Simulated scan of single mutants.
Amino acid sequence: MPLLESAAKLFRLVYILCWDLSLTLVNLVTPSLKPGRIVPHESPGAGGKWPEFVPPKEGDSRCACPMLNALANHGILPHDGRNIRFTELTQTVRTSYNFASTFCVFVPRYAADLLLKNYKTDTFDLAELSQHNGIEHDASLTRQDAEYDPDQSRVHLPFVNALLACASGKDRAGHVRLTPADVSRYSSTRRAAARATNPAFTLSRTHKMFGSSNSSTLLTILGGRVADVEVFLKEERIPAGWEPRAAHRMGLTMLAFQRTVLKVECAIDEGAVLSEGDAE
């Protein structure tokens, strides 16, 4: 049975990657979606009209991902963050954030496997996604390490403020934005600091890629715009009138996303941060 399960997972991965490549090619030869039409018209958030924001109340389940928490805070996912179907997560993330279908199948399936649940039939609470060294990891850009704050639903504002202060770019409309270099620089600082101060610090190669993937979402789906990033990270709220900055007709594919992830990860240099500290 384990051998059959492994073969099935391998086949599914190859299928998703081939599917993703085909969507990437379609994006290359078709025009992007026009502003105001990125979120499907029948979905919450169409035309920038998002459901009312309601902060979580006591007993609601939240996780280490601000963008998933935002969906719950707007009632696009169940507001209490509980008993969410993995298939529901796939559909909701696809329509709300314009990730490609492949992305929206792969990540919830990965989460289901991590939690030893069935993607098609089981449910989960958002807090379950914060299982330490599952998807959640040390040296987060928005949370204290689990060693110091086991409740990974809580944003650590000093980290967010330091990240936003790194922004050095501007987009064509003149909005201040984070660049991949900015995110790499701050990720270097966070990793070096966490490694030096957390006696239980761990960060595998896989979790390094998770970290750079999380931060790359700020650069792709949010376009790096500091005004939007600040609202998402500090309030876990979707700004009025906002729509995904990734306007690809088939959504942001895994292949296209990895270009940003690798750009961020490959430029992270903890040693440079330590050298700067020694020089000071």
Rank of each mutant, 00 (worst) to 15 (best):
A196Q: 08
D80E: 14
P66G: 07
R85I: 10
T202C: 09
V273D: 00
F124N: 03
S215A: 11
E147H: 15
E5P: 10
R94I: 09
W50H: 10
I268W: 02
E236N: 14
R191Y: 02
L71N: 02
G174E: 12
V26P: 00
S43I: 06
T95M: 12
L129Q: 04
M209E: 07
G81H: 06
G211F: 00
N198Y: 07
H79V: 07
A8W: 06
R191D: 00
V176C: 13
L255R: 04
T189A: 12
D228I: 07
V155C: 11
I238K: 03
S204W: 01
V54D: 05
E235L: 14
F106Y: 09
R190G: 02
H175K: 14
T30L: 13
H74W: 09
N214W: 05
S212A: 14
E236F: 02
P66Q: 08
M209P: 00
G47F: 13
L115H: 04
P244Q: 14
R37W: 08
L252I: 01
V29N: 07
M254D: 02
L68I: 05
A227E: 07
E136F: 06
S212F: 01
L164T: 03
V183E: 00
G59M: 06
P35I: 06
S212M: 05
V14K: 13
L4G: 11
R190T: 02
D182L: 06
R190I: 04
S6F: 06
A196Y: 02
A7P: 02
P2I: 15
R94E: 09
V39M: 12
V155F: 08
V160C: 10
D269I: 05
F159S: 13
P2Y: 15
G59R: 09
C65H: 06
H137V: 09
S61D: 07
F53C: 10
C266K: 15
T30F: 13
H175E: 11
P158L: 12
A272E: 01
S215T: 05
S101T: 14
L23A: 13
G251W: 00
Q144S: 08
T197R: 15
G174K: 12
A256N: 08
K234S: 11
E136H: 12
G169H: 10
S96H: 00
